[in-house]
């Protein structure tokens, strides 16, 4: 690990000041410390933001605001989250382990880096780690990689479970930067890889995530999260599905679907949603809509299974929610 200085931020404004001077934000450290040890990340200064806002505030308009330093476990355990946003509680506890969730912050989870083995292997070529060096995943082991909105330069996925639920819930990220505060939808936080896979989000230099806001839960809707992985627990998703569904008179009145493990970002399944809205809430409809989402998929030999697996999981999750 390279040397670095360490400062605990007293408040968000101080954190942004230090970051503008070159420091890197540190949350629970469960991803950054690991990457620093591998010297994939090489910050020379850290500003610890894990002691900043950790509250969960219930606003009068029905929305819920979660401070960026709230630990993943605390979010999943909060009675309001468990009652009104089960998809979020279930997504969080599907990820990592009890120990890691106790340390991981909401801000750090949003900005965790990919688990592509070639990104982690400093002897391999990786355009994300070293722009312009190439991508060894295309010709290598890529069964865990992305099939939607990939580019010739990168096929890595965003590994988070929590973020998939946040995208399905239309959550927003509150940001503070040197130029002031702004709000971005979680769905718009990430970029597709294109020719610049090392640029992963729309955050500018020194921008700090201060909170995540969940809009008021959809009245009468049910929601859940399902993760498919190589072993039952403590493994990243091959495919995961977050879904919010409201059925009225056997018709889909409201539906939001997001997918993990299939793209460089938590993927909002807008094509499927459009097909489903107003359609009969039946297994056939679910299946057709989910398949439509993957018409634009560009799989490689080893991850082609995701193109048939993901729609089946979506259809089954919707069937479970409507039944």
């Amino acid at each position: 690990m390279r040397e670095f200085t360490y400062t605990k931020a007293a408040d968000a404004a101080e954190a942004v000041r230090l970051a503008a001077a070159g420091a890197r934000y540190l949350g629970g450290g469960t991803n950054l410390v690991d990457l620093m040890r591998e010297e994939i990340e090489r910050p020379t200064a850290l500003v610890d933001v894990s002691g900043l806002a950790q509250g969960i505030t219930e606003h009068p308009d029905g929305s819920v605001e979660i401070g960026a330093a709230t630990r993943n476990t605390a979010v999943a355990a909060h009675p309001r989250i468990r009652r009104d946003y089960p998809v979020l509680a279930r997504a969080i506890v599907s990820g990592a382990s009890g120990q890691i969730r106790n340390a991981a912050t909401v801000g750090g989870n949003l900005l965790q880096r990919t688990r592509c083995p070639y990104f982690y292997d400093v002897a391999a070529r990786c355009n994300k780690r070293e722009p312009g060096s190439g991508c060894d995943a295309r010709q290598g082991f890529h069964r865990t990689h992305a099939v939607l909105a990939t580019s010739a330069h990168c096929i890595a996925t965003h590994p988070s479970d929590m973020c998939v639920a946040l995208v399905a819930l239309d959550a927003q990220v509150h940001i503070l930067g040197p130029a002031g505060a702004r709000v971005v939808a979680v769905a718009d936080l990430y970029r597709d890889p294109g020719e610049t896979p090392h640029l992963e989000t729309v955050l500018g230099p020194a921008e700090l995530i201060t909170a995540v806001r969940l809009p008021r839960a959809v009245d009468g809707a049910v929601s859940t999260y399902r993760k498919v992985r190589d072993r039952t627990s403590y493994a990243f998703a091959l495919v995961s599905v977050a879904a919010v569904l409201r059925v009225v008179d056997a018709t889909v009145a409201d539906v939001r679907i997001a997918l993990g493990g299939v793209a460089s970002r938590p993927w909002r399944a807008r094509v499927a949603e459009r097909e489903l809205l107003g359609a009969p809430a039946e297994p056939d409809t679910f299946k057709r809509a989910a398949e439509a989402e993957f018409r634009s998929a560009r799989p490689l030999p080893d991850n082609a299974f995701k193109v048939s697996l993901a729609p089946r999981v979506v259809a089954d999750v919707l069937k479970g929610l409507s039944g």
């Binding site: 476990t73 890691i100 340390a103």
Partner: peptide, 26 residues
């Protein structure tokens, strides 16, 4: 030493935590 095994688990303020992924300064 990378969060994968749990051998380093300790309690920090009564919460189980991986001591290999936590900086001592934290």
């Amino acid at each position: 030493n990378q969060g994968g095994c749990g051998a380093c688990t300790v309690l920090v303020d009564d919460q189980r935590t991986l001591s290999c992924l936590m900086l001592a300064v934290q």
